[in-house]
Design a protein around this nucleic acid. Structure first.
Lengths: 239, 239
DNA sequence: CGTCGGGTTGAGTCCATTCAACTTCGGTGG
DNA sequence: CCACCGAAGTTGAATGGACTCAACCCGACG
């Protein structure tokens, strides 16, 4: 069940068998969440971190006027709230966008890892750093890209991240988001989100129906997005 | 010269004398940068990380059409590229927005810390996690706040972060940004940026002249921004 | 005294929003 | 069986926010 996590970690560096065993011993208790449920709620102080192993989840904040903004999308193999291990208090919620299965890693055990397994510690740290790199890319997209380019970039990113954990088939992947939720990713109104999607469809670079998104023209999509996957650190080297 | 770093770390947890000494031994070689110079350039693979001890710097990315977006502002005590320790390749540049003084921490020595000083390692990790938390807040601001609220939020954030490192006097602080640079923070045109600033001035919540920004009505500014400093983790507790 | 960088202001255009209507489709109950 | 309903998506029209282009101000500096 830890496979997606290992697939992700091994993109960055070699993970020894001892380290894999240590992770396996740290993580326990599978749990399932239904669509719309909070995996972790804002303001809470969890004593464990949550590893997503199946489904799609998102971090979000809600403003006083009711507006919601997603700050990240989480795919299988992502530690959705590893940062809570040190930040202690959740400053945002995490919601299931599809049925989700998660595993639990107790903070005491994570602390043990930091005390006994420096290399594995660095890999977990790196996990949160990639998270930050994705955030930066989103900021750039929100600030300076056209909406069409922003959406294209998101599709590229999701495709690459899902491919790493073998959740793609060919140039397609399941995307269980509603358009209203996508709008909360890009910071748009639902109506306009719909038109932007129509834009990419009309350009013939994607199709999206029945929760299945297919990239029809990967080259063109990358161009529109100015997508450069460097920020995902998908290079296996000593860390 | 390490004072601002210690001031920041001690906001989060107790830093022992041994840890302070270890940091002091890790960090060396002060260096100065002029306005507009890159502290770190995009695409590079630095073998050390850079601690800002004086001045204002920013992370940025540039798009093909020449558009620039800042993804963070860095104040004294910030490790501007601590993430490069594990990410290895810089996916963005870091530029000096005022004359900057920095110190250098070699990656080999940082690695030593991860192998011998788990608590200090966690504090450094935490440093990058707060970074991520700030990124998330920026994403929310860009996506769902009004531009006025976004600017107000930025002012609140800067004030609090600068206060931690004693770079405020009363309700004022030096802000060496040009309006064009602020525009690259919020993702706006210069002209519109100017009008938004005028907005906050007209509301009587800030003044800003001669590179000195003063918060005239802190309560009101916080309201406009819906500012809640939780995300900065300014609570001293065991981590 | 002229020039230049940064800031400010006005006018017109374009993009994104809101409000609203309408479609499609799957589920549910008469 | 089909009529109805609600959720999600799509489309049109009008409003308002953000953009560009342009002019102008002003203080620093040569």
């Amino acid at each position: 069940m830890l496979e997606p996590l290992f697939l992700q970690l091994e993109q960055h560096d070699v993970v020894s068998e001892a380290e894999q065993a240590l992770l396996a011993a740290t993580i326990s208790a599978p749990r399932d969440f239904a669509v719309g449920q909070d995996l972790v709620s804002a303001g809470s102080r969890p004593t464990y971190s949550t590893l997503l192993v199946d489904g799609l989840a998102a971090r979000y904040k809600v403003l006083e006027d009711g507006g919601r903004q997603f700050t990240s999308l989480q795919v299988p193999g992502d530690f959705v709230d590893l940062h809570a291990f040190l930040l202690k208090t959740m400053d945002h919620g995490i919601v299931a966008l599809s049925p989700c299965r998660v595993l639990i890693a107790d903070h005491n055990r994570l602390r043990k890892i930091t005390e006994t397994a420096p290399h594995l510690t660095r890999l977990l740290w790196l996990d949160t750093l990639v998270d930050g790199a994705i955030h930066r890319e989103w900021i750039v997209a929100m600030g300076r890209r056209s909406k069409t380019s922003h959406l294209a970039h998101l599709v590229c990113e999701l495709y690459v991240r899902l491919k790493v954990v073998k959740r793609t088939s060919g140039m397609s992947f399941r995307l269980t988001l509603k358009q209203a939720e996508l709008a909360d990713v890009l910071g748009l109104s639902v109506v306009h989100m719909n038109r932007i999607i129509g834009e990419l469809r009309k350009l013939g670079v994607i199709t999206w129906a029945d929760q299945s998104l297919t990239i029809v023209d990967w080259e063109r999509l990358q161009e529109i997005a100015e997508f450069d996957p460097t920020y995902l650190s998908l290079v296996r080297e000593s860390r």
